[in-house]
Write a protein that binds this DNA or RNA. Structure first.
Lengths: 137, 137
DNA sequence: ATAACTGCAAAACGTTTGCGTGTAT
DNA sequence: ATACACGCAAACGTTTTGCAGTTAT
């Protein structure tokens, strides 16, 4: 039963994929690598990077990147956005479809054909609030 | 006439600041360095990084994190957002205050105290449209 | 069989830091 | 005079790449 893909579904790829799909924490490549190694101890970080890149290009996962910070990966491929805690760095999903109404506005106002939208709120999560951490603004 | 600042307004800082204020292209640190060197040839990249960081901490410029790319800097300090061309990479300002209505929603729905919002649309700008460049999706 | 995939090590990249010298205040 | 800022070069953490051996198809 040949799969209709232009790449091979190897053990490490299957593992990365199912791991990301089950995981809500938007891990970094290194965190993915650590998780993969629990089941496939010999997987190298380079392979994890290569596979994350491939899976993202194939549209099976999403990349969350904030310039100057470590890239993170997300198994949820539907359009959605994130909120990141300024203190602990955690990233959570936000279900919020503000894209469509703005798309028309932007395409009109800037002459762009809008293809996507990366929206990331930053703030302080409930756990970090009151930690005395809000003073570094 | 002593200035009421907790840092010195040196030549390189003044230059970086006025350059960013006059510049609408959201340059990277290296681009800023190149521009600064047109007038101050001996400035080092490390100094540019240090000064960009300081000016951002002081609130005189903004750091913009455009997904997947190098950090960029912006002389416009008011809350605003960006749109980036997928083809040529240019980043333009978008005046669009979608923050306030969403803030309440988010603070409520996720338990976060929202402090800011980085919103970046990606698309194809007018100049790049029809260049045959939209095939690499 | 063979093209795709892998681990390893080294390179590349953007960014930060230590140190001794220079400069704004 | 002195604390701050600087240039230089080296270090850093993340990501990419070259290569030779391995594996899925």
């Amino acid at each position: 039963m040949p799969e209709n893909r232009d790449f091979r579904m190897t053990a490490s790829r299957r593992e990365i994929l199912s791991l990301l799909e089950a995981c809500s924490s938007h891990p970094t490549a290194e965190e993915v690598c650590t998780m993969v190694r629990e089941r496939l101890p010999k997987v190298s970080l380079a392979t994890v990077y290569r596979n994350l890149d491939l899976l993202a290009r194939e549209g099976l996962i999403r990349t969350i990147s904030v310039a100057g910070e470590q890239r993170r990966y997300d198994g949820m491929v539907e359009e959605h956005h994130h909120i990141r805690c300024e203190v602990c760095g955690r990233v959570e999903d936000v279900e919020l479809s503000c894209r469509d109404p703005l798309e028309a506005l932007l395409a009109d106002s800037k002459g762009y054909e809008v293809r996507g939208c990366t929206l990331c709120f930053v703030g302080v999560c409930g756990e970090c609030a009151g930690d005395g951490a809000e003073s570094d603004e």
